[in-house]
């Protein structure tokens, strides 16, 4: 089992969700985060005081998948989130040791999805 964490542009969330559904991946957790990578921050000006390089609003997705769904998940996220410009985001994959479905207390691969 793997835990996939993706940081994407906020306005790409719908497209990514759609691509994931197409790959039969339905269980996702979304949170709003601030990110800073190679993309330049936007300039904000408050009463004449300029502030640049602020953190940018991003969406963070967490998706737990069984091993055979890992590549489809990565492909779906890339397909939905890629524009080719800086700021598209990143995907991280971590080893998932255990997974518990709280409702039934099932464990392991059967509890995912």
């Amino acid at each position: 089992m793997k835990l996939v964490i993706a940081i994407i542009q906020p306005y790409k969330l719908e497209e990514v969700k759609e691509e994931l559904y197409k790959s039969e991946i339905n269980l996702i957790t979304v949170s709003e985060v601030l990110g800073h990578g190679r993309q330049m921050g936007v300039t904000e000006v408050y009463r004449g005081a300029k502030e640049t390089g602020n953190l940018l609003r991003k969406m963070r997705l967490e998706i737990a998948v069984n091993d055979n769904y890992l590549e489809p998940a990565i492909k779906a996220i890339v397909k939905g989130a890629k524009t080719g410009e800086t700021g598209d985001g990143k995907i991280f994959v971590l080893e998932l040791k255990e997974c518990v479905r709280i409702r039934t207390e099932e464990r392991g691969p059967v509890a995912i999805g």
Binding site: Y11, L34, V42, T43, E44, V45, Y46, R57
Partner: peptide
């Protein structure tokens, strides 16, 4: 348009995240 008019037309945002 995708970044929003607040930041691109006025260099401000209405709500901070932190």
């Amino acid at each position: 348009e995708s970044m929003g008019l607040d930041l691109t037309q006025h260099h401000e945002r209405a709500y901070t995240v932190l």
